[in-house]
Amino acid sequence: MCATCGCDSGGNTAIHHLGEHEHTHGGHSHDHGHSHATTKTIVDVEQDVLHQNNLLAQRNRGYFDAKNILALNLVSSPGSGKTSLLERTLKDLKGELEFAVIEGDQQTTNDADRIHATGTKVTQINTGKGCHLDAHMVLHALQGMKPRDNSVLFIENVGNLVCPAMFDLGENERVVIISVTEGDDKPLKYPDMFHSSTLCIVNKIDLLPYVPFDMEKVKANAKKVNPGLEIIEVSCTSGEGLSVWYNWLKSKVAVPELI
C-alpha cells in the first residue's frame, strides 16, 4: 500500500512532526504460504485501482467528521503562494479559529518551519520521489499530530497541478491556487485539478499592472471546466481580498451540533 505514493515500494515517505520525535514509515512485507491450482480460471475483479486510497480517504473523512475538523486540501503549481497564503491566514485569524497544518513536499522541512514560526501545530510529509500526497500519508500524519476538535486543518499538497488531482485525501474542500504570474489559460491546461476543486484562489493580484494576465479570461476558463467553482482574488502582500477568503473559511466551519 505504501507503493501508492509512487516512491520505492520500500516506503521512502518521511513524516516529521515538528517539535516532536521523528517517525519514518517502513515498508510492509506480505507472507505467501499456500498451494496453487493448475487450471486456468477467470477472476472477476471489478476493483477500482484507487480503491485502497479512497477507502483510507473515507477513513480520514470519518475522523474529521467525528472531531468536527474542517479539512482543506490546498493544491497549486510550485510558487503560486500556498505557504504565503497560509502564513498570512494563520497570523490574521489567530485567536478566531484553531488551526493545524500538514505540509507536503518532496524534500526539506522549510515550509513546515515557516508554519511552525507562526505558532501553529504542523507536520511535514516528505514524499521522497512522490509527486503527490495520498490518503495513507495523511492518515499517518494525523496519527502523530492529533489535531484538536473543531479546528481547521490545512493540507498543503505537493506543488503540482496534475497528479494530486486523482488522490482524495478525505478533505472537505479542495482549494486550487493560481497566481497572476501564471497564464490565464491554466484552467484549460490543467482541467482535472480545476474540475475537482470547489474554490479557486487567484493570488498575487497586486502584480496585475505588471503582467499580461486577463482576470475575466481566467474566470471564464475556470467556469468552462467547472461551472460550480467559486473564485476569490487575493494578494497576500497587500492584503487585498483576504477578508473575502477569511469569510469563506468561517462560513465553512460548522458549528458543532448540540444533541
Binding site: 507503493a3 496453487h36 477472476v43 484507487l50 485502497q52
Partner: peptide
Amino acid sequence: SIVMSIIDIAKQQADQACA
C-alpha cells in the same frame, strides 16, 4: 503509483484464488 496499485490488486486477487 497507479501501476503499483494495479500490481497490488492483482497480487492480492491471485493469492486469494491460490493462483
